[in-house]
Design a protein around this nucleic acid. Structure first.
Lengths: 252, 252
DNA sequence: CGACGTCAAACTGCATGCAATTGGAGCGCC
DNA sequence: GGCGCTCCAATTGCATGCAGTTTGACGTCG
């Protein structure tokens, strides 16, 4: 497989892109929890740029679904609903099946070594924090996507994987993703063997089980807006009462 | 199926969003051909906003892959390579199979009526321009995605469908997508019957045949950068000569 | 005639400034 | 104490201004 020219879409060294990367990482490592406020001034000051740039960066992250942006309101780290989390995983399964289908039997020795090295790193990180483990596991999948040389696929897999990361921080039990490392190894092995059918099945099962381990129940553990929880009950009362409920919810 | 609350990610009535929508439509209707220049000043003046806003809009469209943005250079409508076009269609097939899988047997009568009405509109538009036909065909798929009530799926299907639209304007023969209307009807019928397997197969075949009809050959008809065409030959000459070639290419 | 160097216009990258909106603290009323 | 009102600090929405970069036109020279 001839190497395609490097992506035109690759993120340049703009200040905007730098801030995007930093925030993305902070979000997926849960340094910024879902719901955390992201005022433009504060970001600008923190990164040594003007509000204009911070604003632009927030716009990009909103396009990726990592940040929620509402007119005249402070941007916040996205808080996906449980259903959205499930949807994201469903999409991710299909995309990553596509990835391994394209990759099966087409990896160079160097690429396989790179993948193995990454999983080794995951192994070594088992003692560390949960956040780092999750990030490394996610990066394994993104590394796979990169090997397809398809910029579009890379972009979508990355985005949806980051979103899944985000939901893991909302809904998962701690230490829920550690045993997935063996599954990563199995996937590499099947890719190397070129067993297209098997590797698609492995990937499907892998992601599905991560999702099922993580998205334990439609009732989130923490961080969910009271407003969302109460939403289904809103139909039962008059709209005036609902407004009051929301005030209370926001306060709590 | 209970209706989920409307998406938080829906585009607000920002000036930025307005410009995005306008440009998106102009691009997929080929009013703006791939490679067309999009200077911030001109956009700002045309839409009655400042450069800041135009710039922000371009950033969003770049994130969607409709626009190419390079540092210190005028933004241009994206010119996907043939391979990228093929990749986009592959991704689209998987995503839309997911859509119809979720939808099979779960559509209300009203929704089926809406879909049929849309296809009727496609039928009526057969006499009109190619661009309108393509736009309507694309919107049919996006309408389907909307019915899943999954904002993420809507976003990805929309994006990738727009990208495919874009590539059609680059690589397809004229009048290549007309006979697809019957396939749309067949898909609606299978959805209504709730035949999950069949409808996934239909969608797969539908998109695959559109792609095959459209992406006729790795040699594009027009609009492709001379630079890309000459790239494979560049290895034959010294790198100094290549630089000169590129100068010539850019000029022509 | 074509290659090369120079320069001004065009354009982008980014910061700053101002008007408009929000939200929440404080205060009076029931 | 709870509810509603007013008002101000915090924050966003957007335009403008300035500095740096690119483009391509022009003049010069081989």
């Amino acid at each position: 497989m001839a190497a395609r020219p490097s992506s035109k879409t690759s993120e340049s060294s703009d200040k905007v892109s730098v801030i995007c990367r930093a925030l993305r990482r902070a979000i997926i490592e849960q340094a910024l929890e879902p719901g955390a406020k992201l005022p433009e001034d504060a970001l600008g000051e923190r990164f040594g740029v003007s509000r204009t740039i911070a604003r632009h960066a927030l716009g990009q992250l909103a396009a990726e679904g990592l940040v929620e942006l509402r007119r005249n309101r402070i941007a916040v780290v996205a808080t996906p609903s449980w259903q959205e989390a499930r949807d994201a995983f469903d999409i991710r399964i299909e995309l990553e099946r596509l990835v391994v289908r394209q990759l099966a039997g087409k990896l160079t020795k160097a690429q396989i070594a790179e993948l193995n090295a990454h999983v080794d790193a995951e192994d070594r990180a088992r003692g560390g924090t949960d956040a780092v483990s999750i990030r490394l596991a996610t990066e394994f999948h993104i590394l796979l996507a990169h090997m397809t040389n398809s910029p579009i696929l890379v972009r979508y897999v990355s985005e949806v994987a980051y979103r899944c990361c985000l939901t893991l921080s909302l809904y998962s039990r701690p230490h829920s993703s550690e045993c997935a490392i063996n599954e990563h190894r199995a996937i590499i092995a099947a890719l190397a063997r070129g067993d297209e059918v098997k590797v698609m099945e492995l990937m499907h099962h892998h992601l599905d089980s991560v999702a099922n381990r993580a998205l334990v129940a439609p009732t989130p553990r923490r961080g969910r807006d009271l407003l969302d929880i109460l939403a289904p009950y809103a139909d039962e009362v008059t709209s005036d009462r609902v407004v009051k409920l929301t005030k209370i919810a926001r306060r709590g």
